[in-house]
Amino acid sequence: MLTYLLLIGAGLFCIGIFIVLSKRNAIQVLIGIELILNAAILNLVAFGKYDKLNNGGQTFALFAIVLAGAAAAVALAIILNVYKQYKTIDPNAVDKLKD
């Protein structure tokens, strides 16, 4: 059972990474990040089976979900601001960091 969960998690992670690296839209990149987070949460839940007394895994997963939601909100706000500044949300076009 665990193996399947982990495989799904790894698959999610890879998809997430791919999206983050390849998408030309910041929103999509954010989605990719969410996928990676979800892969991590899935791992937490899956490994929770080894802590049945305290259910630490599940607890952490809840925390992580909340934090991920908060982070997504912040990220969206940044994207909104970036869009305001550059009139685009293509991460390749925003390369001011280079200098």
């Binding site: 690296l21 390849s22 990149v29 991460p91 390369d95 001011k96 960091l97 280079k98």
Partner: peptide, 14 residues
């Protein structure tokens, strides 16, 4: 290397 593109950086890190 310093393209200023976050994705590139990420890719490098990976």
């Amino acid at each position: 290397f310093q393209t200023g593109r976050v994705q590139n950086y990420l890719f490098t890190m990976l």
